[in-house]
Design a protein around this nucleic acid. Structure first.
Lengths: 285, 285
DNA sequence: AGCATATTTGTAATTTAATTACAATAAGTC
DNA sequence: GACTTATTGTAATTAAATTACAAATATGCT
């Protein structure tokens, strides 16, 4: 657990002098990790053993060990106290906060994602006759992204962000087809219907959605991303980024499974784009 | 910079004994931060001063300082040595690598993005009569995402992923209109043309693209994201995620600038979606 | 209130760890 | 093969952290 948080949480158990130490550390954490115990003691106006006792109280082996823990906490860009955008935040503040909370969300997703399911999803995808990506609203752009990725693999892939098209496509699906439904909440009614229809028509349905949601129950395979809910009223940003990363992972797994010959093919697709671009030599840095 | 990387990169400048130290540290970084200089020296089968010299060579003040840096590097989920997906990687490996390299890219983008330009972009966007998002190929999904975000703000916003529509839209733009062109490389010819056309018609053109690229030169304002180039042949994943985060930042800046009354309006939009969803109570966990 | 106990804090001694200075060895050069 | 330079290790020194103990402060009880 983060040492900074720990200090804040256990401030109640501290004695008067220990609290002085805590204050100084919380005020200048960066300085602390480069100070000796003597220097810190002086800053907090306490004795050296007090600082040492303070460290032990936080379940560290001593001052040097404490500094190590502190350094680790600070390394994560200090996303410790409050990383939510506030009314009065300036551009630096909200930029930093959004970057940091996105990174934190990815880290959380990384630890929660089920590798086994990913592997099975890759299995299913590699054997698919046709792959369809369906998403609505904000998830539509994720579906588009997925289509773009898999399209390069020279696999029959479609993507619809329109309920009617999705429905038609789902009805026409057959065994061997894979339908990927993307929804953060997993509560979008229309998408649940479509997942059900696809399954009735023997398609394999992969859900990139919340665990145990209505949509999840309609799916053959559920890839749930446990991202800390962004409470702000704007949009579920972090979860969408996590979804994109997940799709990238599936695509990567796909290419790896297909072997090296396949990857040469990929390079061709990439090269084919060259004609539409300015060459680097045309615009030297 | 990450100490682990630094060790790997500067292994050429090391002497024989120093290399031994490097190997031991790279093999057990976690052990290292809890070892004394004597213990580490013994593990690497060198003398203590050699370890100390090793630390200094990496621009640290000494062994304790080195441990601090090492601890910080390890804190970031160890995204250090080789975070590129390899042929023989299993699901755990490539999943971890993709998450980590994405996070590393975000971190890098965070440190390189120019807050000043962000602020100016927000200025421009808040005053726009109409906002258009243009992207092609992989960047199209980013444009869609942007449209989706800004649409909620009740601002006239459009998004085209089709050259012809983009062209028509660009020609019809007028003073006060803002055109946001999204391209990772900044070398897509068609998009450069469109940026030029939009500018000729007095629109403000914001580019989310590479610094000093052909597209960048056509723009009024350039938001460049310095993301470490993903060298794999698959797709520029990391940069796209960074673009999304950037757009989220712009959207956040936008809402903050508009004040609290505006944000109540946002909540209404969100509430309006409720009808299309299953309520939580319908599906208790 | 006053005594006794427990807790907190600091001083000084001790121990441990890290650094420096210097000597020896190994590597490279003419 | 002798000379020079770079590398490595030994031993001494210095700095830092910890421990043991004593003083001070706070707490509880009659």
């Amino acid at each position: 657990m983060n040492v900074l948080e720990k200090i804040v949480n256990s401030v109640a158990n501290f004695s008067k002098s220990e609290r002085k130490v805590a204050e100084v550390i919380l005020a200048n954490p960066q300085t602390t990790i480069h100070s000796s115990i003597a220097a810190l003691a002086k800053m907090a106006d306490v004795s050296e053993p007090t600082v040492n006792r303070f460290c032990r109280r936080l379940d560290t082996k001593g001052f040097p060990d404490f500094k190590l823990h502190l350094a680790q906490s600070l390394a994560n860009g200090t996303p410790y106290v409050n990383r939510h955008v506030e009314e009065e935040d300036g551009p630096e503040a909200y930029t930093a906060k959004i970057f940091e909370s996105t990174m934190a969300a990815l880290d959380s997703a990384r630890h929660n994602v089920d590798i086994n399911t990913i592997n099975r999803a890759v299995d299913v995808l590699t054997q698919a006759k046709k792959i369809s990506f369906f998403g609505l609203g904000a998830s539509a752009s994720v579906a588009h992204d997925a289509q773009n990725k898999f399209f390069r693999f020279n696999v029959p892939v479609v993507c619809f962000d329109d309920i009617v098209m999705q429905r038609m496509s789902a009805i026409n699906s057959a065994e061997g087809d894979v339908v990927v439904c993307i929804s953060h909440t997993g509560r979008t009614k229309n998408l649940c219907d479509i997942a059900a229809i696809a399954r009735e028509n023997d398609a394999t349905v992969i859900g990139i959605t919340a665990y145990d949601s209505p949509l999840a129950r309609e799916c053959t395979l559920v890839l749930s991303l446990d991202v800390p809910e962004d409470t702000d009223m704007y949009m579920p940003m972090a979860s969408r980024v996590a979804q994109l990363v997940l799709i990238d992972i599936l695509a990567t797994g796909f290419t790896l499974r297909r072997g090296s010959k396949f990857r040469e093919n990929l390079k061709k697709v990439k090269d084919s784009l060259r004609g539409s671009r300015f060459e680097k030599k045309d615009f030297p840095a």
